[in-house]
Design a protein around this nucleic acid. Sequence first.
DNA 1: ATAAGTGTACTATATATACTAGTACACTTA
DNA 2: TAAGTGTACTAGTATATATAGTACACTTAT
Lengths: 137, 137
Amino acid sequence: MKGVIPIIAIDLRNPKPIYEQIKDNVKRLIITGALKQDEKLPSVRELAQTTSINPNTIQKAYKDLESEGFIYSVTGRGNFVAPSPKKLDSKRVEALYNTLKATVSELSYLGVSESDIEKVVHNTILHSTPQGGKKND
Amino acid sequence: MKGVIPIIAIDLRNPKPIYEQIKDNVKRLIITGALKQDEKLPSVRELAQTTSINPNTIQKAYKDLESEGFIYSVTGRGNFVAPSPKKLDSKRVEALYNTLKATVSELSYLGVSESDIEKVVHNTILHSTPQGGKKND
DNA sequence: ATAAGTGTACTATATATACTAGTACACTTA
DNA sequence: TAAGTGTACTAGTATATATAGTACACTTAT
C-alpha cells in the first residue's frame, strides 16, 4: 500500500507559502494521531503528483519537518512519522505559549468569553491524544 | 506630549517582516489596555526616527492596523486608538479559534499538561481586560 | 544484474514580497 | 506662514517562494 495521506488541503490563493501549508497539514495529522509512529508518508514524487505541486516544494516541507523532529527520512525507503518527543523542547514550548497568549488576548478583546475559550481548549486536548501514549519509559 | 509608545521591540534578525512586528506590538498594547481609546500613536515620521525604520514601513503597518479596525487615522492630526469592537467579527474569531486549536494541540503533543495550558489561558484573560468594558449595549 | 522507486543535492529561472529611498501634496495646528 | 501630520506615488534592491530540470546514491523486488 502506498503512503496515503487522508487530508492534505492546499490553497494556492492562500498567501501562506505552499511548503508551510504542507507542513501544517502533516503536523496536524501527526499531532492528532491520524498518522501513527513509523507510518510511511507519501513519497516526495507521489505527493507532488497527487497535489500538482513541484517535488522540490514537497521536499522542502519534509526537510523542515525532519529538522523539527516530526518525521525521519531513510534514503531509498521513504519518510516516516517520528516517535513523539521524550523530553520538553523548552524553546518551542515558550514560543507556543507566546502564540497562545496573543491569540487568547485577541479573542478576549473581540468579546469572546473566557468560558467559550476554555471549552475550545478542553475539547482540543481531548481530541489530540488518542495515542494513549503517556511518557513513562 | 508626543505619542509615546511604551514598548516597541523590533528585531531585525527576526525573519518576520518588520511591519508585522510593528503591527503585533501595537495590537498587543491596544489589546492589553496599555494604549487607551482615542490615545494618539506616534506619528509615522516620529516612530520611523526612534526605531530607525523607513517611514514607508511604519505607514504600511498603520494602514493595515486601520483596515483591521485597531486604529483610525486623521489627516493632518495623526493616528489614534480605535474604540473596541461592538459586535463579533465571526471570520476573525473563526481564524483565531483555528490558531488556538493548532497551538493547544502541539503543546499537548509536546507533553505540556492541560492544567498548565489552562493556567496560561486564565492568566492571560485576567491581564487583557483592564478596560472593564463588557459589551451590553 | 537490472529496473523501479526512493531521498537528496545541485543549478537556473521567474515571480512576488519586503524594504528602502525620495518626492509630492493635502490637511491641521500654532 | 511654518511646522507637523497623513497619504500617495515612483523607483530600485534584496530576499523568499516556487518551478524546472538534472544527477546520484540507496533500497527493494525481479
